[in-house]
Design a protein around this nucleic acid. Structure first.
Lengths: 191, 191
DNA sequence: ATTTGACTAATTAAACAAAATAGTCAAATA
DNA sequence: TATTTGACTATTTTGTTTAATTAGTCAAAT
């Protein structure tokens, strides 16, 4: 276990290729060649290309999750945390190019195999928003009628914006307006 | 000019087919057959299939525009008008199936020919939001830092949500939450 | 326990033919 | 004159076959 884990070497190479060329334009042979191994070795450690991509995606989102977790756990006031969360989320997901690919799952049937990771991340975020709102409510800085429907609203907002931002390349067009929106939301939730 | 305008007959048939089968699955022959005319007649009145679709789209959006104009012009207070606008817009565009098709223009290059109509509608909406906010400000019921950036924010929101709502079939999933969002927005803009 | 590389099966791409469809136009009609 | 017709051509799309690529397997080697 001391030597460089073969699995992490594979994942590293796979990440490079998937990130640059996407799932379909990356071949298992390329990945294997890149690490000077035979293709069979990939199949010894992973059952399929889909599973490998899934692992890459999982690690990509895992990094995002841990960064976001830090934001949620920070001891700033709930308003600041919520605002920070929006921007950190945006920034991190903007860089998560394999996640972008999974957004296409809603348009094309081909990406069914990433459902689980996506659902996991969705649940993670739902939980985060809930926590942040709850904390704000307890601190007395936030106010809303119903916490669940407010969470739904925030999730709908951030999710809806992912397609324009990450698939339609409106990031630079929207980024300033998003700042506006975030301020507005936070202000609207203030008690 | 007293007899049934051939152009309106063509548009009516074209609307039926485009609405049901979309741009690519509708043939000029079908439309012509449906009105018991030769295909050539379509080309006598319209230069191309694209131009015909454009006309259909234009009329579809024209109807939406006039409905929305009524909302904007109503003499209710600005808060109510703004709220009404959101829902009327949503309801009308939900039924505008040819407009839905143009949303794909951002993903696929094939729909460049609808740019003008889309831009016209976008400008129309920008103007509406501006008017509504302005009116609200003058009446003293609305308050915001910068009217232009607030308009941008509202446009970004409604536009971003169109893809999930109309292309990804999340209408029924989102409709309740949108009610929540609208209330929230209006509340946030209240002075 | 892991890696190899030749192997098969399945998928995708290329090439071509056939069918469908957009668009044209000279002649007919009203 | 304005409109309509339908046969016509030029493109596009679809279907089909073949070739090439690639995912995935596995017995033998390390």
């Amino acid at each position: 276990m001391a030597k460089p884990e073969i699995k992490s070497i594979i994942i590293s190479a796979a990440t490079q290729y998937f990130s640059k060329f996407g799932f379909y334009k990356t071949t298992m042979d390329e990945i294997a060649k890149h690490i000077h191994k035979a293709k069979g070795v990939l199949y010894y450690h992973y059952n399929s290309k889909e599973e490998l991509f899934n692992e890459v995606l999982k690690q990509e989102l895992s990094a995002v999750k841990s960064e976001l977790q830090k934001v949620v756990n920070s001891d700033e006031d709930a308003l600041t945390v919520l605002n920070n969360y929006f921007f950190k989320r945006l920034e991190l997901l903007h860089e998560s190019v394999n996640y972008h690919e999974t957004l296409k799952a809603d348009f094309f049937e081909k990406y069914h195999f990433v459902e689980e990771v996506r659902e996991d991340f969705a649940a993670f975020e739902r939980n985060n928003f809930y926590q942040m709102l709850k904390k704000g409510e307890d601190e007395g800085v936030l106010q809303f009628n119903n916490i669940d429907s407010t969470v739904n609203m925030l999730l709908m907002l951030v999710n809806s914006m992912e397609v324009p931002l990450f698939l339609q390349n409106k990031y630079s067009e929207y980024i300033h307006t998003i700042k506006e929106l975030a301020e507005f939301l936070v202000k609207g939730l203030k008690s």
